[in-house]
Amino acid sequence: MVELYHVNKDYGRGNHALVDVNMAIEKGDFVFLTGASGAGKTTLLRLLFREEIATSGKILVDGMNVSTLSAFRVPTLRRRLGIVFQDFKLLSRRTVFENVAMVMEVTGVPRRQQRVKTYTVLEMLGLNHRVRSYPLELSGGEQQRVAIARALVNEPALLLADEPTGNLDPNLSWDIMTLFKTINIRGTTVLVATHDKDLITRMGKKVLTLDCGRLITH
């Protein structure tokens, strides 16, 4: 699902964010990406959804060669991914429903189908009573569940999460992780970047560790 070959990312002036990273994530895997702050976790994720371009090396995501992808094709890549951020990135002026349905609106899915899929995913995440609420009326955990609903509604092949529990307390964090596990069991490949060691230990999943831009365990 994800393959990296000799990937380097430099920000110039000797700032090497990633150094010769080689890795592979199989379809259906659940993988944690960990490491101290500044180790390159976020950079690596941003390379995968083509928010940034590797200085050198080859990156394959769901069969697409991200390193040579033209700007024109980037939306195609992103429609196959679900992305979750630490700060949720919800639109505060839109309701929960609109925040989730927006993903399909953007890709031209018919209205009726949008409604059905949005309600289904919100119900799955236990948010059906929050459909008409605005993000700021929700708790942090609920907001993150909306963000996850948004990431899932298009049934992505790969779910990328960057510190998804960074703003949540331990109990809520565990809920979110359980959710990810369920999503993974349903067939979505999951890659979670986090520095929460306890969480990783409790989950007992495959772990990739970055240290100063180098991958040290496989």
Binding site: F49, P75, T76, R79, I83, K89, L91, M102, V106, N154
Partner: peptide, 16 residues
């Protein structure tokens, strides 16, 4: 800007 960023992330085209 925020809205545009999110639209980009969920795969909206430039034209859209």
């Amino acid at each position: 800007q925020q809205e545009i960023e999110i639209m980009r992330l969920v795969g909206a085209t430039r034209t859209y």
